[in-house]
Simulated scan of single mutants.
Amino acid sequence: MRICRRILLPFFLLIALAACSDSPENRFQGYVEGEYVYVSPAIGGTLERLMVQRGQSIARDALLFTLDRKFELAAVEEARHSLQQAQDNLANLEKGQRPSEIASIQAQLRQAKASANLAKIEFERRLKLIEEQTISQEELDRTRSDYEQKAQLVRQIGAELTTARLGARSDEIRAATAQVLQAEAKLKQAQWNLDQKQRTAPAAGFVFDTYYRPGEWVAASKPVVSLLPPENVEIRFYVPQNVVSRLKTDQEVSVTMDGRETPVPAHIYYISPSAEYTPPVIYSSESRAKLVFMLKARPAPAEASGLHPGQPVDVTAPELAP
């Protein structure tokens, strides 16, 4: 429909330009057009709720529609639990063993020291007996071995106590930290997927059209709502080739239309670099008058609410007045 309008409107404008030779040289014909904002989900799904309707004016960030989000909600919940588990594991590695476990190792250390002290006394006693030749060398060696084993056990349990107080090794902590970062990234991804199933208005404006009804399947990237913000309303008009060079961007023009007595001010922001919608002609001095160029002007957002796409208008450029 918009393509037909873009083709037919300029065609009729060309006819009108040719017919209205008695109109002022600084008045041109045109029409209102809009650059629409198409709001679509990045992920497909069943349309669950449609909160707006055609013709409604909405504010920025107003909720437009919601797709079915059961799967995405479950994915977010799973990602949250995974993150909590990874964070608990990292905290456990960083703080070392529990106080009760450390107390148990300390008790083992005290027991080992007592046994080592007893073995030392027994070994020293055997040294005196060997000098008196009342025991054999084999018995002395057995006592020495027992003492050395218990002394070694004291050193081993002491090292275990030091390790328990320090916590996990640095490489284990780095691995646990990486798991936390990975879990955080998965949660962000799951939350992003969830947010895509519920879209809000990127700008305040007019709901131009809706394309789906609740219960219908919406494919990814397919627009559900089209918006027309006031700042996207524009005036398109056409001027002959002998006039276009006298117009400049940011130049003010006056827009009039049927049913409105007060003109609407607008500013030119685009001038086509080439001829628009022209039939094939030979560029002679007689045929050059058929060439027209499209210009675009933008009214103030406060004035744009009273303009409707497709509405015919007259554009007057005061600086071109004879």
Rank of each mutant, 00 (worst) to 15 (best):
Q56T: 05
K186G: 10
G310E: 01
L109F: 00
K248M: 09
A317W: 08
S104M: 08
L228P: 00
A103N: 07
L17H: 13
P41C: 05
A204M: 01
A159F: 07
T143I: 10
A302S: 15
E77S: 15
V218M: 05
R54L: 02
E234I: 10
A42Y: 08
A159H: 09
R69F: 04
R199T: 02
E303L: 10
E72D: 13
Q189P: 00
L17I: 06
L181T: 11
L93Y: 09
R5A: 14
L9T: 12
A176N: 03
T177D: 13
S21I: 06
L118V: 05
A62G: 09
L67N: 01
K95N: 08
A116G: 06
Q191V: 04
S23W: 14
L228M: 07
Y147C: 10
A201S: 15
L307T: 00
C20T: 09
A62R: 12
I102W: 01
G215K: 03
I268F: 02
A16Q: 11
K95Q: 12
G44W: 01
D195E: 15
A289I: 09
Q241V: 12
E139L: 15
R144F: 05
P263M: 06
Y36G: 07
P229L: 00
Q53W: 06
K128L: 15
S226G: 05
S284H: 07
E138Y: 08
N193I: 01
I130Q: 13
A321G: 04
P230S: 08
K296F: 06
I282A: 11
I235F: 02
M1H: 10
P318R: 05
A289N: 12
A266C: 03
Q53L: 07
L93G: 07
R80Y: 02
S57N: 14
Q179K: 15
K70G: 09
F237I: 05
Y36S: 09
S285V: 09
P309E: 03
F12I: 10
S57Q: 14
E138F: 08
L181V: 08
F208D: 14
Q111M: 06
A185F: 04
N232R: 11
Q97F: 08
L118W: 08
S100Q: 15
A304G: 01
A183V: 04
E276I: 07
G205M: 03
I121C: 02
A79K: 02
L161I: 05
Q29Y: 13
K222C: 07
K188F: 05
E48C: 04
N193G: 10
L227S: 01
S136E: 08
D209V: 03
N117P: 00
A317C: 13
R236P: 00
A175N: 10
V253P: 02
V233K: 01
K222L: 11
I235H: 01
V315T: 03
R49E: 13
A190P: 00
